[in-house]
Amino acid sequence: MTEGLNTPGYEIPPEMQGQVSITTLDRIYNWGRRSSIWPMMFGLACCAIEMICAATSRFDFSRFGMEIMRPSPRQADLMIVSGTVTKKMIPQIVRLYNQMPEPKYVLAMGACASGGGPFKEGYNVVSGVDEYVPVDVYVPGCPPTPQALLNGLIMLQKKIDTQSLKTVRWYSKTPDQALPIPVLGPDIMDPRQYALIKEYTQAKLEAQQAALQPPPEGEAAQ
């Protein structure tokens, strides 16, 4: 394992290779994090079954350090959103995402979490969890095979390898804002879009009132 950490160009004598490694702080930091990602036990629908298969002995992801699936968001690094995200569930998903401590990652597993999937036009479906929560890796499939999920997790590990202590958001000077929780109104509402909603509904009301005006007074002289 220490061979992978060693910065190329610095040759270590063979008898010391098991004990000595010359490396950068970024690589150690990322190596520790990518080798022990603890997923949160978060299965919503059918993709959860494939996630369980990826966790069990045949496709085992504990080989990659992910054996401990934590039910509590406070102890998890990775939220694997597996399954259709409904409008009723999205406030809970955002709450759980806020409760996860940094560094945290989100993996959208399956077609439904990536972009709505077969139920995109559904009246109770959020077409893609990335409408509310930032996603790091998308794994397509309906459901993705366990091998595909493992590929996605390996890709997440590669993404973690590219991060640097100087630029990660949890060590930046600006404080991290929690995501606003969506509100269940006449339809699901994102608090970040309140101004846009108000503008849209006002325009709709005005159009309705204008349509009720008798036709001869065509030019609306408010």
Binding site: K120, S127, E131, D187, I188, T201, K204, L205
Partner: peptide, 9 residues
């Protein structure tokens, strides 16, 4: 998003 809101809301 797949949402719609009533007029005047």
């Amino acid at each position: 998003k797949n949402v719609d809101y009533p007029a005047g809301f």
